Amino acid sequence: MTAGATNSLVDVAGLRVGHAQRVGDGYRTGTTVVLAPPGGMVAGVDVRGAAPGTRETELLDPRNLVERVHAIVLTGGSAYGLSAACGVMERLADAGIGFPVEGGVVPIVPAAVIYDLGRGGVFRAVPDGRLGAEAYDAATWSPDSWVNGSVGAGTGAVAGGLAGGIGTASVVLPSGVTVAAMAVVNAVGSVLDPAGGRLSGTRYGLPGEFDHLREPREEEVAAWQGATVTSFNTTIGVVATDLTLTKAQCGKLAGVAHDGLARAIRPAHTMVDGDTIFGLSTCALPFPGATAPGSPERGATAFDGAVRSTSAEGAAGSAPAPVGAGRNAPGAAGLHDVLAAGADVFSRAVAHAMLAATGRDGAPAYRDVFPSAWGN
């Protein structure tokens, strides 16, 4: 297996990522948006932390109506930061993208937050709708959408006393299916191997991915004192694939990605974390042998309506279809490969976040604390 072209979430064709942040004047926070391809994307979610802050997650229950979402928002600001999703929703609505209803469309924008309140000096300096709109705009043009580090939702992140941030990773399976993850690492737990100073997530790297790193010197490990629990935290993210999945299977993908989170962060899912992961499918690749909705081999069903994001002009008379249902769903072996990859790419994404994070007062970067990991 190899990584995709950018080793990031955008290796899943059709996904776009935008970051916006504010630093200074009391701010150290930001927002990241993942935009769906023109047809929208199937999504599921799994919440494991005891202190989550989320929006629209109930819609992702397989029992509920909406089959496609149009964006995912990851943001700082704790519960205050959920308003960033309103800016993304406004941009989508202006573009005529959303769930068709009488008179127009309603964009579906699930969101999750990290706790970074006060890390720039002012408690209420948080993301708002304007910052969400900036992240949306960046996703439509930015060539740096794959960037790792202290950007977007990871701007004010801290992980076990070290500077946290956003990390991404991808893998292309032998079948040609791509699986990728993006993590906003802001954990109360440690990202370090308990036996030393190595980043736990690097153990799941692809050949050559982390070969430039080595075990830090013992004196550096002994000198580092990890942070104790002082506030709420939370690691959030997404794991995505181009293979066609159902909502239930996307939820399972999100759940297995939590295994990757727990491999890279210890402890995970604590009472002061709100760990939340979204599972996404762009449905670009049918499982081998699957038939398309409405084809003669499969036969039309009452649910074979419009499955793409719909403009206001085309909303009337269209209905969402449950993508990936029946013979479109992957077999057990194919799904197993995607799930296994989902856990590993999330662990790798956590490691990349820590390697690229920028240090600051009170939250030094991993590279600053353990320079010998690079042979220095």
Rank of each mutant, 00 (worst) to 15 (best):
Gly98Lys: 00
Phe210Leu: 05
Asp128Lys: 00
Ile108Asp: 08
Leu253Ile: 10
Arg68Phe: 02
Thr230Asp: 13
Ala351His: 02
Gly362Ser: 11
Tyr366Gly: 11
Ser372Met: 12
Ser8Gln: 12
Val238His: 07
Phe278Ala: 13
Asp273Gly: 09
Ser200Tyr: 03
Ala365Gln: 06
Ala363His: 03
Val184Gly: 01
Ser145Val: 02
Asp25Trp: 00
Val109Ile: 05
Met41Asp: 09
Gly121Asn: 06
Asn64Ala: 09
Gly362Asp: 06
Ser78Pro: 11
Glu218Arg: 15
Ala356Asn: 09
Glu58Tyr: 07
Met354Asp: 02
Phe370Tyr: 15
Arg360Asn: 01
Arg214Lys: 14
Asp304Lys: 08
Arg367Phe: 02
Val69Arg: 01
Asp337Met: 12
Glu209His: 09
Val73Glu: 08
Gly196Tyr: 08
Gly197Gln: 09
Thr291Ile: 02
Asp25Lys: 01
Ala85Tyr: 04
Ala5Cys: 12
Ser347Leu: 02
Ala357Trp: 03
Val239Tyr: 05
Ala329Thr: 04
Ala51Asp: 07
Asp11Phe: 10
Gly165Cys: 12
Asp273Cys: 11
Pro288Cys: 14
Ala79Tyr: 14
Leu60Pro: 01
Ala223Arg: 13
His269Pro: 10
Trp146Asp: 15
Ala187Trp: 02
Leu60Phe: 08
His19Ser: 04
Val113Leu: 08
Leu82Asn: 01
Arg198His: 12
Thr276Pro: 09
Glu220Arg: 13
Ala139Cys: 09
Asp259Gln: 14
Glu220Tyr: 13
Arg124Cys: 00
Val323His: 10
Ala302Lys: 12
Gly44Pro: 00
